[in-house]
Design a protein around this nucleic acid. Sequence first.
DNA 1: CGTGGCATGTAAGCGGTTACATGATTGA
DNA 2: TCAATCATGTAACCGCTTACATGCCACG
Lengths: 197, 197
Amino acid sequence: MSLRHALLALLRVGPLSGYDLQKQFSQSVGHVWHAADSQIYPELRKMALEGLVTVEEQTRGERGMRKVYHVTEDGERAFTDWLDSAPEYQRIRDAAHLRAAYLESADPEAARAFLRAHIAHWEHELSCWEGELSHIEAIDNPMLVRRLAVTSEQDRERTIAYKRFAYDGLADRARGEIAWAERGLRLIDELEGPGAR
Amino acid sequence: MSLRHALLALLRVGPLSGYDLQKQFSQSVGHVWHAADSQIYPELRKMALEGLVTVEEQTRGERGMRKVYHVTEDGERAFTDWLDSAPEYQRIRDAAHLRAAYLESADPEAARAFLRAHIAHWEHELSCWEGELSHIEAIDNPMLVRRLAVTSEQDRERTIAYKRFAYDGLADRARGEIAWAERGLRLIDELEGPGAR
DNA sequence: CGTGGCATGTAAGCGGTTACATGATTGA
DNA sequence: TCAATCATGTAACCGCTTACATGCCACG
């Protein structure tokens, strides 16, 4: 249910077209809450129906058009209500740890390949998040810049601090996953003997 | 797509009825891959249709009946093929870190409540996983006991080691989430002043 | 005149959630 | 005879994925 909150988080900074929103999304909040393009347009439509946003239809050239979305008071309230509400947690469904629990039935080389893939995956995530962190520190992420432009002086530090806090947490998690998988590789060496590679 | 692999992991140890499977599930592999009861029966039916398991229908008393599922060679192969295949990763969708990134818009007390709830959630998960770890060390988890009974002497150590590895990883992740949320509570104190509580 | 980016979607399907639904057996 | 537990499901819905579908505009 958080796609709409992610969208509201961006729109709250200022109106955006569906297309621009989708672009900004993948470069900012999309690093925390992924959404496919094909999901964003229908969700915006539903949000408009529910009165969380209004649609301003603009013409582009002769026949082209774009829809610019504005947050309403209800939308603003939906966002802050969500922030102030009790969090909900997904039930665990962790394919990597499920697999890890049964590695004794895998081919040792396949087990190593799995852990190397795990490391590669989380190193990629880590570099994304470290990149975001440096954009936060340098204040050169486009959405953050827009956000700070409409934020009072005394709130800027808080805004930046919470973003840093969020991405720091994600980066730590990635480091933990990498360290775990590296422990796993050493464990395979101990149990199955050193590998071919 | 991993529900069936979780089910195969249990059935591979020996045949079980849908009901017993569901009970065992929630006490073992369900700690890593959650599944609702209502999901397990249809999935077993599909797996039978696809030839991964066979169904042995047993009568119970006059009219009662139970279906006992046995893994077929195809089922065995589906499981090991999965273990040997490249892992797939879900796109990130992390409500807690999404929320954390926008805490400047939340009421400070609600922000604290959120982080306390985060800590409580992960402490609960942690105690589950630490419990599982002690069952693994003591070798008194029912499924593990059954598993080891059909495992050769020299494979027991490996079997236990990989389970320990998997649950250690989950426990570390939980500790990371707790440490992160505690940092968050201190950050709120710094930014918003010490709280009411 | 073509290409790349702007712009907006639909449709089918899948895995999971929630709620509902039913009935038999066992033991106190 | 009553409750607990054994035992097996169905139906509606929801969010997400994948693939498909269309057409305009600006620029070289």
